[in-house]
């Protein structure tokens, strides 16, 4: 990337720390969280071509990990971060091992993740361990030691750190041998297998990596809103949002999800403001979505690529 772009990126990323408006910081925070989740999806869905429709499984796993660690075992919520990395990766590895061993890909893989998300939703809605449909209230107790921030800038800082981490992982994938193997599988499974790439292992690791990172987002959610329930954790909307952010921005590129999150959040906010009729704004949002898909088949990053070419 060229120097001016790095400067613009740094200003955008660090700017919110200078803002006094909590709502603008909040907007930045939501955008960064969204970019982070999109980037997590991108690691599996973009670089690996594993089009997941149930990525909220990992988000929800992280959120419940945080809530249960505190309310059941009284552990410090910061411990939820490493714990969620582990639980998220394990769930990713388990689903990946099952699905890829069975040779699922494309629409079939998308559907199986959708179904797993539903299983998680029903289970968390039924089990005592997760307090069923009651959901879990995390007791209010503001303070950095307790991972509850009164100032949104602190939440933003954590979200930004997550985004940097996930983007570093994406950049690494772009260069590393592992990423090359993954890309080879995405482009042509048979050819890659003929070259000695272990399909099940490579894809499973990618999903586990993506799952572990996504779970961090769930922890941040739980610590910010202090309430976790089956619909918030495992509802299909969040899965769709992650996928849209990555695909609209440009799946399989390092900067695509970030662009996607920025553009989608701005569109959502602009289309929402000043329109009073319920339903009208999201309708407009849907139309804009169709236009972007129609005009930019490679995602928003396509504009940049075209300009550079």
């Amino acid at each position: 990337m060229k120097a001016p772009l790095i400067v613009v990126g740094l200003v955008l990323a660090l700017g919110p720390f200078a803002l006094t408006s909590q709502s603008l910081v909040n907007f930045a925070m939501l955008t960064v969280v969204s970019a982070f989740l999109g980037q997590c999806w991108n690691i599996a869905g973009g670089f690996g071509g594993l089009t997941s429709f149930g990525h909220t499984i990992f988000f929800g796993t992280g959120a419940y990990t945080a809530a249960i660690l505190q309310t059941r075992w009284g552990l410090n919520p910061w411990l939820a971060l490493p714990a969620a990395l582990v639980t998220g990766s394990l769930v990713g590895a388990a689903i990946g091992a099952a699905a890829f061993r069975a040779g699922l890909r494309g629409s079939y893989f998308a559907l199986v993740t959708l179904a797993f998300a539903e299983v998680f939703r029903v289970l968390s809605n039924s089990l005592d361990f997760t307090r069923g449909g009651l959901g879990i209230n995390i007791p209010l107790g503001m303070g950095a030691g307790n991972f509850q921030f009164a100032d949104r800038r602190s939440t933003y800082a954590v979200a930004l750190a997550f985004l940097v981490l996930a983007t570093a992982a994406a950049a690494w994938l772009k260069r590393a041998r592992f990423g090359a193997r993954l890309a080879a599988l995405r482009e042509n499974e048979d050819a890659a297998a003929a070259l000695g790439v272990n399909l099940v292992r490579t894809k499973t690791i990618a999903l586990a990596l993506s799952g572990g990172l996504t779970a961090l987002g769930g922890v941040l959610y739980a610590q910010t809103y202090l309430y976790v329930d089956p619909a918030i954790s495992f509802g299909v909307e969040r899965s769709v949002e992650m996928l849209l952010v990555a695909m609209i921005g440009g799946a399989g590129t390092v900067w695509g999800p970030i662009l996607g999150a920025i553009v989608l959040h701005i569109i959502a906010d602009v289309s929402r403001s000043w329109i009073d009729t319920p339903g009208f704004a999201p309708m407009l949002y849907g139309v804009v979505l169709l236009v972007i898909i129609g005009l930019l088949p490679r995602g928003i990053i396509g504009i940049w690529e075209r300009w550079r070419a």
């Binding site: 769709v240 609209i248 339903g279 999201p282 309708m283 849907g286 139309v287 979505l289 169709l290 898909i293």
Partner: peptide, 13 residues
């Protein structure tokens, strides 16, 4: 993606 977009529009119409 297009079918998703259509769904968003229809639901909200």
């Amino acid at each position: 993606l297009a079918t998703l977009g259509v769904a968003v529009v229809l639901d909200n119409v």
